[in-house]
């Protein structure tokens, strides 16, 4: 593993510089640059196919990039010798389709990675997992299999599963997009609690109301570039770019 190259918490925890990503001929990201500070909550919004999901999937190296630089706590992600597993211990990710392990109970889903990957003692991890279940308001569902839980409950287990690794950063990839309106709220409340505790979060989302409420900074992407960004107070009211204005007028 490469050393942390003198990173200190007052520097950006995540730093993207001129990131280019293509799938074959199709260029999805065309030079994206932004910084996220520790404890910040950042929302990425934009129309479908604008490269939002690809962007955050590059941060934990699920997708590789062709050009530019992504640094997580000072460590370069765009590096052939990158220890992906070390990176992913620091960066948690939650998916649109929850992706829980269907053959394990909710509690086992949460415990698996800390026990098998971090090799932590089982008793300690179980205690932490139970506390996490309580935190996402799912006490009593510890022994339920994913198939027995609603979408919103599964998504909260997925969040707890990611948190059990004690990551420094959490990535949320349209985590409420597959949920029905009533269950969206319970997931958003969970993420809000996290943000309030000072967890660094990057969210790709279509929930504008939520973005306005919790985000410290909002980025609007379209066709692979960041078109406009700003704190929510000004972003929603003082958008200047025509594409942003059009998008917001369709959504709000």
């Amino acid at each position: 593993m490469t050393p942390n190259s003198g990173w200190t918490p007052d520097q950006p925890i995540i730093s993207l510089r001129n990131v280019h990503k293509s799938f074959g001929e199709l260029e999805v990201l065309k030079g994206v640059t932004f910084d996220v500070m520790k404890g910040e909550v950042v929302c990425i919004i934009g129309p479908s196919g604008s490269g939002k999901s690809t962007l955050i999937r590059c941060i934990n190296a699920l997708n590789d990039i062709q050009e530019g630089s992504i640094q997580v706590e000072g460590q370069e992600v765009h590096d052939a010798h990158l220890d992906k597993l070390e990176l992913r211990k620091k960066v948690g990710m939650v998916f649109q389709q929850y992706n829980l392990f269907p053959h394990k109970t909710a509690l086992q889903n949460i415990m698996m990675a800390p026990v098998k990957v971090l090799k932590e003692p089982k008793e300690e991890v179980e205690k932490r997992a139970r506390a996490l279940m309580a935190k996402v308001r799912l006490q009593g569902k510890e022994d339920a299999y994913p198939g027995e839980l609603s979408g919103g409950q599964q998504q909260r287990v997925a969040i707890a599963r990611s948190l059990a690794m004690r990551p420094d950063v959490m990535l949320f990839d349209e985590v409420t997009a597959a949920l029905d309106p009533e269950t969206v709220k319970e997931v958003l409340v969970t993420i809000k609690d996290l943000a309030a505790e000072g967890m660094t979060c990057i969210l790709v989302t279509h929930e504008m109301g939520f973005a306005r409420e919790v985000a410290d900074h909002i980025y609007f992407t379209d066709r692979g570039v960041i078109v406009e960004h700003g704190p929510p107070a000004t972003f929603f009211t003082e958008a200047s770019d025509p594409r942003t204005k059009e998008f917001l007028s369709q959504i709000l």
């Binding site: 934990n60 699920l62 992906k84 597993l85 070390e86 992913r88 211990k89 960066v91 948690g92 990710m93 998916f95 992706n99 829980l100 392990f101 698996m112 990675a113 098998k116 990957v117 599963r161 990611s162 690794m165």
Partner: peptide
């Protein structure tokens, strides 16, 4: 399922 476990550092 592969992606989920990879992102948990498996």
């Amino acid at each position: 399922q592969w992606e989920a476990s990879e992102s948990l550092a498996f």
